[in-house]
Write a protein that binds this DNA or RNA. Structure first.
Length: 904
RNA sequence: GGGCGCAUAGCUCAGCGGUAGAGCGCUUCCCUUACAAGGAAGAUGUCACUGGUUCGAUCCCAGUUGUGCCCACCA
């Protein structure tokens, strides 16, 4: 086909953007070309005749990877731009929340890459200690086995198998999404290198006194059989029962209230407030503890609130964090009465009972003794649950490893306070500070098998012998490594530098640390963000990111949280297969108002698919009409107002889009590009250009070049968000190798206010006439002949275009009725031979007249208001003056039109 | 008990001291040769309530109500 032919012989692209997988796959022409940058032939023949996103997207992705577009180079002299991925847990598959964050990260790095940065988006996954171990244990349970049946080594082997399977699934999803990550740098938190980083940091912290071992009350999950940290506990309001128990005998009694009667077996004191006169006589005395043969002291402690309940508290130092503190202050015994599974160990009738069975049994026994003086049920109170398995947490006295947080948290907080790291949106930083400034020490040891084994060896007496990666543990009897593993967040806290090769001073580390942006959900500020900030400032002396971009959570179309129990969870793959990855990505970007939750529904993805289809067809049309990017842009003197208008708008949109990208305003970005492309380019410029194309000659050549330019830039602007369809269309349009490595558009600074005004007038004229016609119920099928009279020089130049847009007959036919329509800066007189509904017209005009009169009254009032004139800014006053002027003109005109109407 | 946020069209959400916006949905018309996954024209809101500041408040301030989230060792 001849290049630039205005009359294509056949449809070069399918007329519909069909994402169904069942469509025939298309041969990939560009693969056959040995030279990807071959001679430019902007012909529709470059595009396949059918397009099926689900198929084409995968092909395109593999090609990008093969060509190494996403591989970052440490040796380049380009400015680095780095994002490390929040490593997904290997527990399952990616959900819409991942798709959402990945879209943002991908768009950011793709744009920076196009801008000439050495862009690195580093991929990887997290071993997710307790979560993964639980999943594999569930799997084993289905086979009727437990992890103890397998033994530690075989179990860990089994988890690695799991990781291969589900990790592979996740990587496949990332490819399907189009994530432009550097696969040569893929990392896993249990990799040898990252494990070494973990051990090295552990050793450093141990030596700096920031890691210590201590016996304290910890949150214990009786199902997972491990300690967990404070933030791994989820509190929820549960129905309980508050019972008041009478302790002691005779006149030496005291009533205490509890929701946990079973722990009374471990009580070693009753505490009252020191100033509480009701109990003054008891302080220091010992009273009988029911159901046991023990007596316990009554102690005075300021922690007790005399206003609450009876003002007396039972104290169980081994099973309650508050009581633990009281126990310490008063040197009380720590008596454990529950084992690691929550079963009573205290000798006696309750031994062997589960904690909840024991609770009712003990209450029953006390009731029999008449020691229950009051009951309140249900009693709603806040109860801690394991965030992984929802089992009720059992506070338990236990020896664990701890991180001394205060010095680390101080540094992490300062990095944000002094502006080295910026949290965006800013109001989220209060949440960060709240936590960083009040954080308690962090329990890091876990009684699990899957994770980084604590790098500590003990001697025969249980003493710490050596710590860290470089020391050989001494052999011989009784020497052993700590059996526990580290909290999974310990290794993910090192992620921004461990992935780049630390503790070695690798070129990667030199070039890419600190990273630029962290994109993650506000829900893991404490778990992950704060920990990375602590480790980064401590280990590297530099916070790991310049910007922390916090995203909201993805919700369903009614703003409801997605969860399995609601049944509203959507697999991103489902929508990607049905509508294409681009459609999903665009929808997610469109919902991305910084820091707010993102609702998403299938209809919205469909709408995005429709947008992709629109771009597809507009580009197809452009190619059929010879749009080109060849050669320089025509001079301004050669361009029509329509050309200057669209280029003026184009450059403004480039600037606007840049601002939005820089501010992570993806919702505004996608909205601006959507409306510019669809409304201005496709609905107006393309329609206006049709008349020019039809006439041929130099004006048509100019329009072809301008249309080519506009599409080229729009496709490049959209590429970071919707990479696939833009790649296909951009390469077809420009003949370029790939839009992935194309230059990012720059605002040339070209603006043409006059042209923008002129086209606005044309648009208004066309719209007014269309509305008039619709109001009159004039059907196109009626073959209405019309005489179009344009008043004002600017519109005369557009007469052909207006006739085309309104599908008017050529001038010169007979006409009778007259309608004169208001247009800013001009008048369009439309003379119609069709019948006019006089009553409808009178009604419409009356309505307009009323509106204009109201406007006149309002504006006159304002302009007569001296206080207003004194204070309102000039531009506001000008605007109101202008409105009054228009209203006056309108009133005169409408009155004349009303008078001209034939009598009803 | 503290802290933060939100209340705008049927739905999901932007906006913002100076005549109320988008997408989807809805109504009417049109299969105009890029696209019916399209085109054209429309309807719809006491901008939660009550006060205050201002020439002017959906926007700023105070309070009320409703709602969501986070934190917290309420026995």
């Amino acid at each position: 086909m001849a290049q630039g032919s205005a009359a294509p012989v056949h449809k070069p692209i399918r007329d519909r953007y069909i994402p169904a997988r069942t469509l025939a796959v298309v041969t990939d022409n560009s693969q056959q070309s040995p030279e990807p940058n071959g001679p430019h032939t902007a012909s529709p023949a470059n595009l396949p005749t059918q397009y099926a996103p689900a198929e084409v997207e995968e092909t395109l992705y593999e090609r990008w990877v093969e060509r190494g577009y996403f591989a970052a180079d440490t040796k380049s002299d380009r400015t680095p731009y780095t994002i490390v991925i929040p490593p997904p847990n290997v527990t399952g598959s990616l959900h819409l929340g991942h798709a959402f964050q990945h879209t943002m990260m991908d768009a950011l790095t793709r744009r920076k890459r196009m801008q000439g940065y050495e862009a690195l988006w580093l991929p990887g996954m997290d071993h997710a200690g307790i979560a993964t171990q639980n999943k594999v244990e569930q799997q084993l349970a289905e086979e009727g086995k437990s992890r103890q049946d397998l033994g530690r080594e075989a179990f860990v082997e089994r988890v690695w198998q799991w990781k291969e399977e589900y990790g592979g699934k996740i990587l496949g999803q990332m490819r399907r999404l189009g994530d432009g990550v550097d696969w040569s740098r893929e990392r896993f938190t249990m990799d040898a290198g990252l494990s070494r980083a973990v051990q090295t940091v552990f050793k450093k912290m141990y030596e700096d006194g920031l890691i210590y071992r201590a016996e304290r009350i910890i949150n214990w999950c009786p199902r997972c059989l491990t300690a967990i940290s404070d933030i791994e506990v989820e509190y929820q309001e549960d129905d309980g029962e508050l019972v008041s128990l009478k302790y002691g005998e005779g006149d030496q009694t005291v009533v205490v209230a509890t929701t946990r009667a079973e722990t009374m077996l471990g009580d070693t004191a009753v505490a009252v407030h020191p100033d509480d006169e009701r109990y003054a006589h008891l302080i220091g005395k010992r009273i009988k503890l029911p159901l046991t043969d023990r007596t316990i002291p009554v102690v005075a402690d300021a922690h007790v609130d005399p206003e609450f309940g009876t003002g007396a508290v039972k104290v169980t130092p081994a099973h309650d964090p508050n009581d633990f503190e009281i126990g310490r202050r008063h040197d009380l015994p720590f008596l454990s009465v529950l084992d690691e599974r929550g079963v009573i160990t205290a000798h006696g009738p309750f031994e062997g009972l589960d904690r909840f069975e024991a609770r009712s049994a003990i209450v029953a026994a006390l009731r029999e003794q008449g020691r229950i003086v009051a009951e309140k049920r249900p009693y709603v109170h806040s109860v801690g649950h394991c965030s992984r398995c929802k089992t009720t947490i059992e506070p338990r006295l236990s020896m664990q490893w701890w991180v001394k947080v205060a010095p680390l948290a101080k540094k992490a907080g300062d990095a944000v306070r002094d502006g080295r790291t910026r949290i965006h949106p800013a109001d989220m930083s209060s949440r960060y500070f709240d936590w960083v400034d009040n954080m308690h020490d962090w329990t890091i040891s876990r009684q699990l098998w899957w994770g980084h084994r604590i790098p500590v060896w003990y001697g025969p007496e249980g003493e710490v012998v050596c710590v860290g990666p470089d020391e050989e543990p001494p052999g011989g009897e009784g020497w052993h490594q700590d059996p526990d593993v580290l909290d999974t967040w310990f290794s993910s806290g090192l992620w921004p530098f461990s992935t780049l090769g630390w503790p070695e001073r690798t070129p990667d580390l030199e070039k890419f640390y600190p990273t630029d942006v962290l994109v993650t959900g506000y829900d893991i500020i404490f778990f992950w963000v704060a920990r990375m900030m602590m480790f980064g400032t401590y280990v590297m002396d530099e916070p790991p990111f310049h910007t922390i971009q916090l995203t909201g959570l993805v919700r369903d179309e009614h703003g409801k949280k997605m969860s399995k129990s609601f049944g509203n969870v959507v697999d991103p793959l489902e929508w990607m297969e049905a509508y294409g990855s681009d459609a999903l990505r665009f929808t997610l970007a469109n919902g991305a108002n910084p820091g707010t939750d993102v609702p998403i529904g299938e209809d919205w993805v469909k709408a995005s698919r429709n947008f992709a289809n629109k771009i597809w067809n507009a580009t197809r049309f452009a190619l059929m009409n010879g749009a080109t990017v060849e050669g320089p842009l025509p001079g301004q003197d050669e361009m029509a107002a329509t050309d200057r208008w669209i280029l003026s708008r184009l450059n403004a949109v480039v600037a606007e889009a840049d601002g939005y990208y820089d501010d992570f305003q993806f919702a505004k970005l996608s909205d601006a590009l959507y409306h510019f492309a669809w409304d201005e380019v496709f609905d107006w410029y393309v329609e206006l250009a049709k008349t020019t194309f039809g006439k041929g000659g130099r004006p048509a050549e100019v329009s072809r070049r301008v249309l080519g330019e506009v599409l080229d830039v729009v496709l490049r602007l959209l590429h970071p968000v919707i990479p696939f369809v833009t790649e296909t269309l951009w390469t077809a349009l420009t003949g370029g190798e790939s839009v992935v490595i194309a230059d990012w558009p720059k605002d040339s600074g070209f603006r043409d206010e006059a042209a923008e005004q002129e086209i606005a007038t044309v648009q208004r004229a066309v719209t007014e006439v269309r509305r008039f016609r619709a109001d009159q119920g004039l059907q196109p099928g009626q073959k209405v002949r019309a005489e179009l009279t344009l008043d004002g020089t600017s519109l005369v130049a557009h007469e052909d275009a207006i006739r085309q847009l309104l599908r008017l007959q050529p001038a010169g036919e007979d006409f009778h009725a007259t309608a004169s329509l208001p247009v800013a800066g001009a008048t369009v007189a439309l003379d119609l031979s069709g019948a006019i509904d006089v009553e409808a017209e009178r009604k419409r005009l009356s309505k307009d007249l009323a509106a204009a009169e109201k406007e006149l009254a309002q504006t006159t009032g304002k302009l007569g208001n001296e206080a207003f004139l004194a204070k309102a800014p000039d531009h506001v006053v000008e605007k109101i003056r202008g409105r009054r002027g228009v209203a006056e003109v309108d009133i005169a005109r409408i009155r004349a039109q009303l008078a001209a109407l034939p009598p009803g």
